[in-house]
Simulated scan of single mutants.
Amino acid sequence: MVVEEGAHAPRYALPGDAGADLSTTVAVDLGPGERLLVPTGVRVALPPGCVGLINPRSGMAARTGLSIVNGPGTIDSGYRGELKVLLINTDRHQPIHLDAGDRIAQLVIVPVLSARFLPAEQLESSARGDGGYGSTGLGSA
């Protein structure tokens, strides 16, 4: 891991936490509905077979409406650039101010499987079939 001067290394708030906090290196002002790509000053070398997922911090989302546009963000194991977070202010009325050093997201590192995609004339059937959005809640009372 490389951490720029003045940046904070990812850190777990409590033992057993899945997500390591990422902090901004710059002050940020986000107006209602505004989005911005925010630097963390951190570069990592993830182990092969793993992916880093950048997730919103639930407390910030609940208190201020701060979220991530492409949440979770995907960091491939071969990426060596700075981790940046695409933040969005989902509050329709209140701006959000962040100071340099404020925690803005969490990095979760998980193993990943790669699939082989093979062409087929049709797929084998399943209990769900082609039921899409909301289909598992239909017919339940």
Rank of each mutant, 00 (worst) to 15 (best):
L36R: 14
G137K: 01
Y12W: 10
P72A: 08
L66T: 05
R43Y: 00
L37P: 03
K84D: 03
A45W: 00
P47C: 00
H8N: 11
H93N: 06
A45P: 00
D130F: 08
G81A: 07
L86V: 12
A13K: 11
T74M: 12
L118I: 15
P39E: 06
E5T: 01
G71C: 15
G31N: 10
S114W: 00
N70I: 05
A141E: 13
E4Q: 10
F117E: 13
F117R: 09
G31C: 10
I88S: 05
F117C: 13
T90F: 04
L53K: 13
S135D: 07
V38W: 02
L86G: 02
G132C: 08
P72G: 10
R35Y: 04
L113Y: 01
I104R: 02
S126V: 07
V44S: 03
A105P: 04
S125H: 10
T24D: 09
N89V: 07
R63Y: 00
R80T: 12
V85W: 01
M60K: 04
S114E: 14
L66R: 06
P39H: 06
L36V: 08
R11G: 01
P119W: 05
V112W: 00
A120N: 06
E4V: 01
M60E: 13
S58Q: 09
G65C: 11
A27K: 06
I88N: 04
R103L: 04
S114F: 02
V26E: 14
P72Y: 02
G101H: 03
G49R: 06
D130W: 05
A20M: 11
L113M: 11
R128P: 09
P48N: 01
E4G: 01
A100V: 02
L66H: 03
I96E: 07
T64E: 11
D21T: 11
S125C: 07
N55I: 14
I96G: 08
S140H: 14
H8L: 15
A20H: 06
K84T: 13
S114M: 08
G101I: 09
P15D: 15
A13E: 15
S67L: 05
G41I: 01
R63H: 09
T24E: 05
E34G: 07
L36S: 12
